[in-house]
Design a protein around this nucleic acid. Structure first.
Lengths: 343, 343
DNA sequence: TTGTAAGCGTTATCAT
DNA sequence: ATGATAACGCTTACAA
């Protein structure tokens, strides 16, 4: 039973000190003779040595691991974002740990604790229940994903949800719709607000009276969308168009429409938000507001790297911190689920 | 600038030795007086101490982190599997690092190297390019996900791809189809084989002559499916039904059919495999073969835990190892994209 | 350019 | 039931 070789073994084999080995391995080769580098590398080969990142982390206080905390990895929106994050962070040598809170408060907090215990270098999070102060208390450099308010102490990357909603509503309005339903996710409290605000602002601007029976609040999944639409259809004067807070809800609504024998877009227009893969696979393909998911992830990583390059521990506490927000604009992805109202 | 408190600080505060603190923290409280436990815990509270997992790992040679290596996290199949893995592993206190190889050989290998350097406790992988021996060389307990052959040294969890294919073909055959196209993914070399074998076996059993022009091999995405179907439709006698190796390909094919003005299922039946979310969102909803994705992930985690509970380092090398394979049966999810052929 | 030696924060071993 | 002390494998002043 041979244990794994350490730098000491390598040092012996190469006939140098472990310091020198360390210098070679960390690429700090600047101050090592070329010939010595060779000898060390040969020894590494021969022994099949692998650098022990754990020991290194203990010494350097950097793990090169970051955490990405998300509410629901099975919503296709997030994997696309995650890829942007990963592509960028990997390039800098960071590994990305996924934390899937499943909308659960305790889990979300547990993950923060995990990040602390494991001394992860940074956190990227779409906060669902966790507060600004709780995030600050981790003392870990953190960047938020999602257009959230109430987080004055952090950089935020997201999309312009307010604008996205306006875009969708304008599209419907221009087609001639005046009675427009809104399907919101129940859990999505914070961004949900910005959608709602955008909705009411829009109605006001267009001088359309607000009808609360047109606003549905349902669980954030396909079935939620289905239920919401069923209820909307049962109104004495149903809407001629519906905006759903995301594509999953919209697809559920679309299915409910099919099931109810309502033809989309002839008798009902439906718009989603996100532009996930499935949006283009429905019939009719879903008109939706596209968010640059990959870019969002990438930009979030970029912000994080800024924090990491400076003094990791101090970035939050010390110098006056002005949070940056990068909200990507969204674009209308016009497909087949919207058309002028029939009458 | 106060550094983070260590067990030494806690020990001082509580008036005990750091050994005792360690005992309390690791839950090894068996041999500590209740009163002492109290004192230590109070000190922990007061100082805001968090256990340093890195230092602990260095000493114990366990990180409580496992790696999940996947080819494409944006294929909705995998997040569902991942959730099963995470739910199970979390319960045992493990964190899960995602590695997204994006079908790239170098990246996949790089991730193995990462797992070694970081001393991850185990690897869960859907191997795309990596070989049995390369996996063995990591000396890290590993379990495979996916129905792969050529990996004699590892436990495998997956689904019965061969059976799934038979199921789909039988369904089409029973509907009356005799000319059935097959759309395979180009990259998916190994499981692709088992689908192909199942396909040819089936034809043979039913005494249908094999027509190679009915077998398409395309990139593993929506566009691949689209292209494949276009080509199949351009044949002098096109197939009356098509089986796609996964739902993404099937959805691409479905779209191509729409675009070509071919009505599904009236003029063409399409079957997918996986039953991802989008499969039920298409019109017509896709008939497909459902795999128990969450269960697959959970079972894989279960196998892994077996390895972890025994001597981690020895599980591969020592005692005679009989690999287990747990292949879940798949079920036909009959929806709207299949019907008897028209003639 | 290279080596010596002192940590990093734990846990394991052995005493007491 | 508790404590002293030696690892764990690496990085980093400081010396040479």
């Amino acid at each position: 039973m041979k244990r794994r070789p350490t730098i000491i073994d390598v040092a012996k084999q190469a006939g140098v000190s472990k310091t020198t080995v360390s210098r070679v391995i960390t690429g700090d080769g600047a101050n090592v003779r070329e010939e010595t580098v060779q000898r060390v590398q040969e020894a590494v080969e021969e022994l099949g040595y692998t650098h022990n990142a754990v020991a290194s982390s203990l010494r350097t206080a950097r793990t090169n691991i970051i955490m990405l905390s998300l509410p629901d990895i099975t919503n296709p929106f997030w994997p696309a974002v995650a890829r942007g994050v990963q592509d960028r962070m990997e390039k800098e040598g960071y590994a990305v740990v996924f934390a899937n809170s499943d909308w659960d408060t305790e889990r979300e907090k547990m993950f923060l604790e995990m990040a602390r215990r494991n001394r992860f270098d940074a956190i990227l999070i779409n906060p669902v229940h966790v507060s600004n102060d709780e995030l600050k208390a981790t003392h870990i450099p953190t960047v938020l994903i999602g257009s959230h308010e109430g987080f004055p102490d952090f950089d935020i990357v997201g999309s312009n949800t307010y604008g996205a909603t306006q875009l969708a509503l304008t599209h419907l309005y221009d087609l001639g719709h005046r009675r427009i339903g809104l399907i919101r996710g129940r859990r999505e409290s914070r961004p949900g607000h910005s959608r709602l605000r955008s909705y009411t602002d829009f109605l006001q601007e267009k001088q359309i009276p607000l009808d609360n029976s047109l606003i549905m609040r349902v669980p954030f999944d396909e079935n939620g969308g289905r239920q919401a639409l069923q209820q909307l259809l049962s109104l004495s004067t149903p809407p001629t168009a519906v905006l759903a807070a995301n594509d999953i809800l919209a697809i559920g609504a679309l299915q409910a429409a099919h099931e109810a024998g309502i033809s989309v877009p002839d008798h009902l227009s439906i718009v989603g938000i996100d532009d996930i893969f499935a949006a283009s696979a429905t019939t009719p393909p879903l008109t939706t507001i596209a968010k640059p998911q990959y870019e969002i992830g990438k930009q979030a990583a970029e912000f994080l790297l800024d924090h990491l390059e400076k003094e990791p521990a101090l970035s939050l506490s010390k110098r006056p911190f002005t949070p940056r927000r990068h909200l990507f604009d969204c674009t209308l992805q016009q497909r087949g689920s919207t058309a002028p109202p029939i009458n």
